[in-house]
Each structure stands twice: as C-alpha cells, then as structure tokens.
Amino acid sequence: MTDKRGQDDPLDDFTGRVITFDDVAKTVYVAGEGPAVILMPEMPGISPDVARFARWVRDAGFSVYVPSLFGVDGAYPLAEARETVVRRACVSAEFRAFAGGGTSPVVTWLRALARLAHTERGGPGVGTVGLCFTGNFALTMALEPAVVAPVVNHPSLPLDDPGGLEISDEDAAAVAERVARDGLEVLAYRFENDRWCTGQRFAAYRALLGEAFDGRVLPPESANPSPPPFFRDVVGCAHSVVTAHLVDEGGHPTVRARDEIITFLAEKLATPAVLNRVGG
C-alpha cells in the first residue's frame, strides 16, 4: 500500500492486536511473515512515513511488529503534535526524556514483546529498530536474549544532554557485556549537524560498545527538503533518515540507508529465502 502524502494512513493492511504484559496493554500493528522485527515509532507516533518503512521491512520477508507508544496511530505529523504528544510523553512515567533518568521503563514491556514475537515467528532471533525518541530502545532491548539485530536510528534522548545516552549505568554495563559476549553488532544512522542526535552522542555509543557500534552519518543536504509540518517546524533540521527525511528515489543516500538496514536485518535474522529476497 502506498500512502498519499499529506494524508492520514488507515493502517488497514496491518492487524491491530492488543497485547498485555504485567497488566499493561498496548496496541501492536503486525504484518508479514518470517523472522520478527520490532519497529518502534518516532515522535509524534506511527505516522504514514513510519508505516511506509514498516511495509518495506514486511515486503523484504519479515514479520513487522509496530507498537503504539504515543500519538494517534496513522496520523499525518502536524506541528500541533508538539503540545498534544511530545510534552505529554516527556512527563510520562514510561519514558526518561532527560539526563539522569536512566533507562525508560517502557523498555521492559518492549523486551516482553520481543520474547513473544520470537516465540510466534521463530528464526534465530528478533530485530529491533528504534527511531528518534525510541532510538536507544533498540539497544536496551538487547538485554532480552531474543534480540540479535539492534538498529539505532537518530536517537534523541536525553533531550537535554547531546552527549548522553538514555540508559542507566547498570543497563549500560550489561548491554556492553552482552554485545561483547555474543558478538552483537549495532547499526546506527544520523544526519550530520542533527541537533537532536549529535556526533557527541555517537561518540558515547562508540565509547560504550567499541567497534561493535557501526554509526553511519549522512550529509544534511541529502534530507528531504519538504518533510511533514512537525519535522519542518518542530524538529527543524535533517533528522529522520528512513522516514520523514527519506527521499524515495533509486540510489539516493537515504534509500541506500534503508536498504542497508534491511540487509543488516536479513544477515542477522534471515532464512535463505529472506537473504535471496534482499539480494544478500
């Protein structure tokens, strides 16, 4: 399904499931067959561009699970979402948006989702893809053994510390240990000059994870110059590599980034059929 620019996405080619762990229920949109990939939305929610990326993952031969964590599912990102979604999430008990807060509690729920997805879909493990506000969740979910392919896209937390990581000291040590022990690789993307995800933040990831952290940086001029209003007026810089700032043209740097992510997932998760489908 191709969404029309500027319109809401009905998400009607996904199955909406209400999934509960520890008495916390969330809607998760599921589509596809094959090994599971959990795609977490960026602010201000499961936008048409997030759904478009989910469909690309699905069409590559994966089962994609997209949990609803904030915002209105399928809504086109308007600037007004800063007041209605972002501010509410920043004070929510589920998230740790500022320095010193440690790991966001919602990650415990997401780890349980990873276990469920692995049970349902099988394969060698589960991929995790975080975007912006949820970017680092893809890494901290790796404390769940089922997670074997974390992708950290333009992680924006903590909002008030450009060189900080949204993770407690205890979890940071445990993640670094697991990455080293199991030989995990962590793929990451950002635009150069992104004020929400800085070079200082990528340096902090490298300090924690060493050579296991593969941080890739795109030039800002390669970003879509006409993103939705939320990204134009609130984000205000090149930021969302594979969603709002992607330019859907063959050979474009952002499309190459999308394809690199899908290939990474295929190499870590795939059956031969998936590898063949992505040209691996």
Rank of each mutant, 00 (worst) to 15 (best):
A81C: 02
R111G: 02
G135A: 03
R87V: 09
A149M: 09
V151K: 05
V50N: 11
G16I: 01
A257I: 01
K268A: 09
E120V: 00
V247D: 06
R82K: 13
V234R: 08
D194Q: 07
V57F: 12
E120S: 03
L187H: 05
A212I: 13
P124F: 00
L187S: 06
V186W: 12
S226Y: 10
L187G: 04
R258I: 00
E221S: 11
A93Y: 09
S168L: 09
A60K: 08
A117V: 02
V241P: 03
D194R: 02
L78Q: 09
L157E: 11
S68C: 03
V91E: 14
E192F: 06
L113T: 00
G16H: 12
L113Y: 10
E267V: 07
Y76K: 00
T198C: 04
V255Q: 15
R115A: 15
V18P: 15
C90G: 04
A203D: 15
G215A: 04
E94R: 05
E80Q: 10
P158T: 04
N136H: 15
V50G: 03
G74C: 00
R190P: 08
G135F: 06
D214M: 12
V186G: 05
G125I: 04
V72Y: 10
V274Y: 04
A79Q: 09
R256T: 11
G16A: 14
V64A: 04
P229I: 02
A149P: 00
A223P: 06
G163L: 03
V247H: 10
L139F: 08
R115E: 13
G122C: 04
F202R: 13
V50A: 11
E80R: 12
D259L: 03
G135P: 05
V152Y: 08
D161R: 07
A60F: 05
A51F: 11
